[in-house]
Design a protein around this nucleic acid. Structure first.
Length: 361
DNA sequence: TCTGGGGTCCTAGGACCC
DNA sequence: TCTGGGGTCCTAGGACCC
């Protein structure tokens, strides 16, 4: 069947919201994220800040060095959630086949609706105009015959883009792009591909399958399919949550002691609260520790019955910590995750993406 | 330059069962 | 005193995405 898939992505979302709500910030470099003195990183940067080389996930200290005039704003996830819901409602007015990927991004299957909107580009234009009118935010749109093409197309047009890739031109559209443009190719895969002489999506499309499997393992065949413009993955409207977690990086490294154990309890409270809100319990408690040298370990413990009980989570995590900690250890991060969620949690998970926190830009 | 926090998925080894 | 093997669960680590 001939499908038409839209990928919609709000531009520099968190930073754009801050500029929307505070006119003083418009036209200025704005960086959303934690403070440099507390080891924060950039969650989103306005395009004015990006001009200085500031990027998402960059240490805030570096961002402020690159762009000393940047205005740093702490994130306001509740506000981003409000606007996200408004935008998702606009999408829902076009089709019920929506797969939100984060607060600012979604796939839409508009196969049934595209003709009545006057075609792919007209439908994309309508979405952009409607979002702009209702919220003041700019949206980038990619339209194509599958998810891969739609996603890459919206990335290609940013910001405020509208890129339509007609059926039959998928492979030609993708071929010149860097391998990194494909979903699932990160720094490691990119480096491994380069060492095999593969740098573009077109190279992946043409490569020997055996080479790709050697370099990328079991993902090789699927990535080649994507690179050739083939992707029959459906837009998934249901999402099962698999885990609930919380973690915190300390402003300064902590050795074992009351301060660290208090942080553990605080993190556990956050997890228990969010489990309760989701109506979920987990059978497995995972303790995550990052040492001052950035080495990260996890230790987990499973039980027969799922739980969302704070005291249980705290005591389980404390025992896991007891089992690994040495007196000379210093930690920069502690996290607790609950996995193997019970049925209640998985069932209620699908609503959360629409309603809850967050991913970066 | 000094590295967040929310997640998902995959791999690989070992225990255990039949 | 030289080997089973398939299935499932648990654990630990890592790549990747936003």
């Amino acid at each position: 069947m001939r499908r038409t898939i839209v990928h919609a992505d709000l531009d520099a979302f968190y930073a754009s919201v801050e500029q929307l709500d505070d006119p003083e910030l418009r036209g200025k470099p704005v960086v959303v994220g934690g403070s440099p003195s507390e080891r924060g990183v950039v969650a989103a940067a306005s395009y004015e800040a990006r001009a200085f080389g500031v990027r998402s996930a960059m240490p805030m200290s570096r961002a402020m060095r690159l762009c000393p005039k940047a205005v740093r704003v702490p994130p306001r996830f509740d506000r981003y959630g409000e606007l996200s819901r408004q935008v998702m409602k606009i999408f829902a007015g076009v089709t019920q086949m929506i797969e939100p990927l984060s607060l600012d991004e979604a796939f839409l299957d508009v196969s049934e609706q595209v003709d009545s909107y006057g075609g792919p580009e007209a439908l994309g234009r309508w979405l952009k105009d409607e979002v702009k009118r209702a919220t003041g935010l700019t949206l980038s749109i990619g339209v194509g015959s599958n998810k891969t093409v739609a996603k890459v197309a919206s990335d290609a047009g940013k910001p405020d883009g509208l890129v339509y890739v007609p059926r039959g031109t998928e492979a030609a559209f993708l071929a010149p792009l860097p391998a990194r443009a494909l979903w699932g190719v990160g720094p490691k895969a990119e480096a491994a591909l380069r060492s095999a002489g593969i740098t573009t999506v077109g190279d992946i499309a043409r490569a020997e399958l055996a080479t790709l499997e050697r370099v990328l393992g079991s993902r090789g065949p699927f990535l080649q399919q994507m690179a050739q413009g083939h992707d029959d993955r459906a837009v998934e409207t249901e999402h099962e949550r698999k885990s609930v977690g919380s973690e915190t990086t300390f402003a300064r490294d902590l050795a074992d002691g009351p301060e660290l154990r208090n942080e553990l309890e605080r993190v556990a409270q956050d997890v228990a609260r969010r489990l309760a809100r989701a109506g979920a319990g987990g059978r497995t408690v995972v303790l995550k520790l990052r040492y001052s040298n950035f080495k990260t370990i996890t230790r987990q413990s499973s039980r027969e019955e799922a739980t969302d009980d704070l005291a249980t989570i705290v005591s389980t995590a404390n025992v896991l910590l007891d089992n690994v900690v040495k007196p000379e250890d210093k930690f920069r991060l502690l996290g607790i995750h609950c996995t193997n969620l019970d049925e209640r949690g998985r069932a209620s998970g699908q609503l959360r993406l629409w309603e809850e926190d967050a991913a970066a830009d």
